[in-house]
Design a protein around this nucleic acid. Sequence first.
DNA 1: TGCGTACGAATGCAATTGCATATATGCCGT
DNA 2: ACGGCATATATGCAATTGCATTCGTACGCA
Lengths: 150, 150
Amino acid sequence: MNAKLKPAVVEAWANLVRIERTLLDRVEEELKRAQLPPLDWYHVLHAIDRSPKGMLRQTGVQDRTQLAQYNVCRLVDRLEREGLVERHQCQLDGRNNVLVITAKGRALRRAMWPVYAGAIAAHFGAHLSEVEARHLARLLGKLVRTQATD
Amino acid sequence: MNAKLKPAVVEAWANLVRIERTLLDRVEEELKRAQLPPLDWYHVLHAIDRSPKGMLRQTGVQDRTQLAQYNVCRLVDRLEREGLVERHQCQLDGRNNVLVITAKGRALRRAMWPVYAGAIAAHFGAHLSEVEARHLARLLGKLVRTQATD
DNA sequence: TGCGTACGAATGCAATTGCATATATGCCGT
DNA sequence: ACGGCATATATGCAATTGCATTCGTACGCA
């Protein structure tokens, strides 16, 4: 299970690992500079906000963010403490939590987006042509889709 | 600084963030299953091992791995405690540490590689054609190179 | 020589994460 | 109704990370 590793795959992997760490660091840095919370807060708020009625089960957040179960649990604790989301036990299945984004949560998400978007544009988008961006989106999207099934 | 964010860039970014977390999780999972230490240990050992004479300054490790200064410091603490590297004060400039990989360190790196490579092949390489892998390597490589300067 | 500044490394403390396990609820077969 | 299994969430504790600061060394310059 080891012989078939092509050099191009290794190179792509190495570049992926490296660029990801660099870029996430820079984005986090800009959020901090703007006195905003970490990126994961945005991702969770975004996942809930874009769901029908601004509600999403906790497992839904796990699926969309790829965060570990216990991390979602504790991150939601923090969001709840800040009044950004509400956590309700599901009426239909008492095992589920339904998370509801609050007005304050929406406001924070909206406040974070320009900073986040600016960081993406400056550190990532600025170095890609339109065609390259589409190519990259397509290649990575293909990988994302394969991950769902294997 | 915000208007010019093309949809393709946002999509590429979202896919990058998502796939990266998924893939790193899977690789870490396989290392754990094989009773091996975390990926960062590999990256640090690899950086040192591939340097001339198996020596590298601590800042060199930072540059190559993109880990934070204090995290490198403490990760090296752990590696040193396990006898995988030695930490020497540089003769020429007493501020620098020179890290030297030990035989045990090399052995661990070699033991980790098949597992790591297998995980890369299975979760990443298997879903890309040769051409796609080259494309991806090229696009990401371009980003890596731009990061050095801005 | 001595002071100010810069750089590389280390560290105290708080926050977050990972791991293993616990709790709570629902579902199924008898 | 009941026991056994599965699913969703939570949590105690140890390890790691982030942040701010400190320490030690080198360098430039009066």
